[in-house]
């Protein structure tokens, strides 16, 4: 569905992405893993059009997305930190987003219902806890039923019950054939939620395969240990 073709991105002298190519397909869930500053956020932002690559191309169903904006109707994005205008109410935010997306199909209000957000539609953003804001971000990402979801640290700050609700939702969407991209520092979450691992370090992709293959290859049953092994391998190489 998405093909990233030899993307490079320089911030001044810093090479954030140094020739990244990757294919992302429907029905799969990709865990983007890498140390801080490895370039995984930059890669996500390139796909979202927030960062413009220095060179290379990104295609969605064969069409280049560079300098386009309407393709983002196919993406639901849940940012790592959801900060919203202080005096805006949840209901107003939803209404505004619906206006921006101009969505014609059915809305997916499952998360709104399960997180019981509708009861809080009149509350202004500045009064909300970090967890509630995460719930709002998650609900927004799924609301327009997009074929692709990009979730940046989706479980951070959520209470255990909500984490389970969100995880179930993510897995349901994957089995429905959606493309899912997740970054997280919680390896057990990634183990549950993703089918593929993309390990990024210093702006390059060092590993790109299914979790099952990774576990086989490293001989570790836990994703965390398997990844550590990969990390050590790249560090010594």
């Amino acid at each position: 569905m998405i093909s990233v073709e030899d993307i490079r991105k320089n911030f001044g002298n810093l090479r954030a992405l140094d020739g990244v190519s990757v294919e992302l397909s429907k029905g799969r869930s990709y865990a983007f893993i890498g140390p801080n500053g490895s370039g995984k956020t930059t890669l996500i932002k390139c796909i979202l059009g927030l960062v413009i690559p220095t060179s290379g191309d990104i295609r969605l169903e064969g069409e280049s997305i560079l300098n386009q904006w309407d393709y983002r109707a196919s993406i639901g994005y849940m940012p790592q930190i959801g900060r919203y205008p202080d005096n805006m109410r949840i209901g107003q935010l939803m209404d505004m987003m619906m206006n921006i997306r101009n969505h014609s199909g059915a809305l997916d209000e499952e998360l709104i219902a399960e997180f019981r957000l509708r009861d809080m539609y009149d509350k202004p953003m500045h009064g909300l806890s970090g967890g509630t804001r995460q719930k709002v971000s998650a609900a927004l990402a799924f609301l327009f039923n997009p074929p692709m979801l990009i979730l940046d640290e989706p479980t951070a700050g959520l209470d255990p019950v909500s984490v389970e609700i969100l995880k179930d939702k993510i897995n349901r969407e994957r089995t429905d054939g959606k493309l899912i991209v997740i970054t997280s520092h919680v390896m057990s979450d990634l183990d549950e939620l993703s089918s593929e691992v993309i390990y990024i370090c210093d702006g390059r992709i060092h590993y790109n395969d299914s979790i099952d293959n990774l576990k086989q290859e490293t001989g570790h049953e836990s994703l965390g240990r398997a990844i550590s092994k990969i990390m050590n391998r790249t560090a010594t190489a």
Binding site: G49, W69, R72, P79, R83, Y84, I100
Partner: peptide
């Protein structure tokens, strides 16, 4: 203060 919100808006299908 609106930086993250602007980011979120820009992740939507909008110019």
């Amino acid at each position: 203060n609106s930086y993250e919100f602007i980011e979120l808006m820009l992740a939507q299908p909008v110019n």
